[in-house]
């Protein structure tokens, strides 16, 4: 295995809704332990791109390869792969009828076929990583937004993913709760998790990102280090967007 073989490899990805082409040929490779930020205006296709990476959306053309497995191959067991691709949503999407613990153990038991006892051990470890072990018996409605999002992260983390996808994980949160979620994400990045993050938290991106990708109208306009993208970019579109973020 060469050091260069990426965990997540996207090649010429295209996706349309009706006549509306949302992704117009995306190429992106994310390597082990890398943290890649995706930024771009609303409607530029960031969520669609992430959702194609675990096949919540089916691409029209192109390939998505995760850990060497082509997700579009009909022989691929997509549910087994999804375990290895964690996803965190803007609106948390915790199961409201289940306690935090059961939110996490459901996939461990049903997909990874763990016993309840084993699943709970893994779930507790994940809860500890997000600092919420004491909330294991709380229902989502009893938790703050920040706590809910950390539980949602634990739900993905417990499945031991190869790569984690974050779709604006903090934009539904009150400003004072954002920090706790970002802290958890920093820890994960430092611990060597491979992460793709759609987020406009610029300060956080400067600290945590290895690479920033700027998307607009379904194409990747440019990518580079946070310094390059947030500093003086060559592209007028990027500069315009970044200056808007800074306001």
């Amino acid at each position: 295995m060469t050091a260069a073989s990426p965990i997540l490899d996207i090649q010429d990805l295209r996706k349309s809704y009706g006549a509306n082409e949302i992704l117009k040929g995306i190429d992106l490779a994310v390597h082990a332990q890398e943290t890649v930020f995706i930024i771009g205006p609303s409607g530029s296709g960031k969520s669609t791109l992430l959702r194609c990476c675990n096949r919540l959306e089916t691409p029209d053309a192109g390939t998505v390869t995760v850990d060497g497995v082509d997700l579009g191959d009909p022989r691929t067991d997509i549910n087994a792969m999804r375990r290895r691709i964690g996803m965190v949503f803007q609106s948390f999407n915790l199961y409201p009828h289940m306690k935090a613990m059961d939110n996490i153990t459901l996939a461990l038991r049903r997909v990874s076929k763990k016993s309840r006892a084993d699943a709970e051990v893994l779930a507790l470890a994940a809860l500890e990583r997000v600092g919420l072990a004491e909330k294991r018996n709380a229902y989502p409605a009893e938790l703050s937004g920040g706590q809910q999002q950390r539980i949602a992260i634990a739900r993905a983390l417990a499945l031991e993913p190869k790569v984690m996808l974050f779709d604006e994980p903090t934009s539904a949160l009150d400003p004072e709760l954002v920090g706790s979620v970002l802290a958890v994400m920093s820890d994960m990045a430092r611990a060597g998790m491979t992460m793709v993050v759609v987020s406009h938290e610029m300060r956080f991106a400067r600290d945590a990102a290895d690479r920033v990708v700027f998307m607009d109208h379904g194409v990747i306009v440019e990518q580079g280090s946070p310094g390059e993208i947030f500093g003086q970019s060559q592209h007028a579109r990027t500069r315009a967007f970044v200056s808007q973020l800074e306001r």
Partner: peptide
């Protein structure tokens, strides 16, 4: 039941019937 619930369940690898049985119907 909101679409996010389906998304969340499917993204953890739950099958369609499991998502219905454990996530959607109870709600």
């Amino acid at each position: 039941v909101r679409r996010g619930q389906w998304d969340a369940a499917r993204s953890t690898g739950l099958t369609f019937p499991d998502t219905l049985a454990f996530v959607v119907l109870p709600q």
